[in-house]
């Protein structure tokens, strides 16, 4: 801090999130989005979740079944119902060459971004706030009860006090924030296992076999993608300060009143 002018012209704030953590957090979004839409186009070329021919959905592809279900639910007859998911969440069908080249580009950027994120966690000491703690199981139950009560308590006009939390993040947040880098690492490792199974045979074996790596890659993508939904909802519920702190690196919540959940 440099010298401050007058005492009334100062604001007390809590510094949050190392600069690298903030930048890489936001860069993750377009990268993951790009990886998802190209990845699903690649997946379309040869689905890993296959089953015998289904006479109702007319496909071998599990995602094709889900697509047919969604298309019928929405009465969407615009296109082949088996391709609904691919037409809405990927570059589209028969786009393998462009999907692969964009996927490699984004995958390398994602790895660089992940390394910078880890660097930011280490430099800012933020990793300590993500570690599991002994109080987590009890607090997780309390938080779950709190979240489940959120809507009923509004309807019934009953109080729903926020449980006291022991650390910066509550147990559910910590579990989510702790597992995200793990799934990020898993998605990268399984990606390499299926990208270079001959030269990185040991890595392929780590996922049992080639299809094992494909399944882990797919499931990790689902987990990373699904995380976004409650994450965004809770940030909105928590308020502008939480959102702002991930951009500016400071929070105006100076008192340790144990709130803040995103």
């Amino acid at each position: 801090m440099s010298r401050a002018p007058q005492s009334t012209d100062t604001v007390r704030v809590v510094p949050k999130h190392h600069g690298l953590v903030r930048i890489t957090h936001w860069v993750n979004i377009p990268l993951l989005f790009g990886l998802l839409v190209t990845g699903l186009s690649i997946y379309w070329a040869a689905p890993v979740f296959m089953h015998p021919w289904n006479p109702v959905t007319h496909t071998h592809d599990g995602l094709g079944d889900v697509s047919v279900f969604i298309a019928r639910l929405l009465h969407d007859t615009h296109d082949d119902p088996r391709n609904w998911i691919y037409n809405h969440f990927s570059l589209g069908t028969s786009s393998l060459a462009s999907a692969l080249s964009i996927h490699w580009l984004f995958a390398y950027l994602f790895m660089i971004n992940g390394a910078l994120y880890a660097l930011g966690l280490a430099a800012g000491g933020g990793w300590r706030a993500l570690l599991p703690r002994g109080t987590d199981p009890a607090e997780a139950v309390a938080m779950l009860r709190y979240y489940l009560n959120a809507v009923p308590s509004l309807v019934l006009r009953k109080p729903n006090p926020h449980p006291k939390i022991a650390f910066k993040y509550n147990a559910l947040q910590r579990a989510a924030y702790f597992s995200m880098p793990i799934f990020g690492a898993l998605v990268v490792a399984s990606g390499w296992a299926m990208h270079k199974p001959a030269m990185l045979g040991w890595l392929e074996r780590l996922f049992v076999n080639y299809d094992g790596a494909r399944i882990v890659h797919f499931v990790s993508m689902l987990v990373l993608g699904t995380f976004v939904v409650p994450h965004v909802i809770l940030v909105i519920a928590d308020g502008f300060d939480t959102f702002r702190s991930m951009i500016t690196g400071w929070s105006a919540r100076v008192k340790e009143d144990g709130d803040g959940h995103a």
């Binding site: 002018p5 704030v13 809590v14 510094p15």
Partner: peptide
């Protein structure tokens, strides 16, 4: 070493912030 550090407020010039 793995314990969470307490959050510490700092005073910043309002204009600068």
């Amino acid at each position: 070493p793995i314990e969470e550090r307490p959050e510490v407020a700092i005073a910043l010039p309002r204009r600068k912030l």
